[in-house]
């Protein structure tokens, strides 16, 4: 297993959001995590990435056998974890290219690799920008500075393409995107699908799953995975809503 989560129980400001969650994701797989608003989908993403403000009461999360929950956020990233943020923050004055270079330097240094040379990085970044339909001057602009919602989401995918993580969490990569942008984001994800890489796509809507076909779909409810199934489960949710698929579930 690439990612193994056992009995994960997490509170935010004293309130239990995740309650004994189990989840296994094997290398090469794409899993979708769905669920109604407030079910705790983003909490799971943030806890795995190491954001402050979440209290882990019980359980563990292993990435390639490493205990994620005891690691600093940057160490998790260096271990191959990438979170595509639902709301990426702006860093004024720091160009996308400079940001990418710094991140790559740090990641490569942690892996004991020499820094990527500037020309190679620039080439790779330009190509990735093109794939995502981003304008040529995009790399010079400040990180997310004055970007539209769609540009921010595509910038997350651009970073993912260049940083080449092993395990990717996409937190609502589709929210606020029109169908053209959605296709570009999906194409970015599909481009990176490989037998030694895994994805967890968090989403409200089955729409993106039309373009990125998941191996497994999970429904988060009551603080744990209440229902799991094949891609077909997403269609059932679309047709009948969460109530229909959760009927008779443990929650």
């Amino acid at each position: 297993m690439m990612l193994t989560i056992r009995n994960l129980t997490v509170a935010v400001e004293g309130r239990r959001i995740l309650d004994g969650l189990d989840l296994d994701i094997a290398a090469g797989e794409v899993h979708a995590l769905m669920g109604p608003n407030g079910a705790g989908k983003s909490t799971l993403a943030n806890v795995l990435a190491g954001r402050e403000g979440y209290e882990v009461l019980e359980g563990e999360a292993l990435l390639d056998g490493q205990d994620l929950l005891t690691m600093e956020p940057e160490a998790r990233a260096q271990a191959g974890l990438f979170l595509s943020f639902q709301h990426p923050v702006e860093i004024p004055g720091v160009s996308n290219l400079q940001f990418l270079r710094t991140a790559l330097d740090c990641l490569r240094k942690a892996r004991g690799e020499a820094p990527l040379d500037s020309a190679a990085l620039l080439r790779a970044a330009r190509e990735a920008a093109q794939v995502l339909g981003l304008p040529a001057d995009f790399l010079k602009r400040g990180v997310n500075e004055g970007f539209s919602g769609g540009e921010k989401k595509r910038n997350e995918i651009l970073q993912m393409l260049l940083l080449e993580p092993r395990f990717v969490i996409l937190d609502e990569p589709d929210s606020g995107l029109d169908v053209d942008a959605l296709k570009l984001v999906a194409a970015g994800v599909n481009r990176l699908r490989r037998p030694d890489r895994a994805f967890l796509i968090i989403t409200h809507y089955p729409r993106i799953l039309e373009y990125v076909r998941p191996d497994r779909v999970h429904v988060l409810h009551g603080g744990r995975i209440a229902r799991s199934g094949e891609a077909e489960l997403a269609h059932q949710i679309e047709a009948g809503g969460y109530a229909a698929v959760l009927e008779g579930s443990v929650a």
Binding site: A49, E74, R76, F82, F85, I91, F99, T102, C106, L163
Partner: peptide, 18 residues
């Protein structure tokens, strides 16, 4: 901002400098 940088593998000091 700090968390965003750290999630990309950048250590806190370098993140602040950036």
């Amino acid at each position: 901002q700090l968390f965003y940088c750290r999630q990309r593998g950048i250590d806190p000091e370098r993140a602040v400098a950036l």
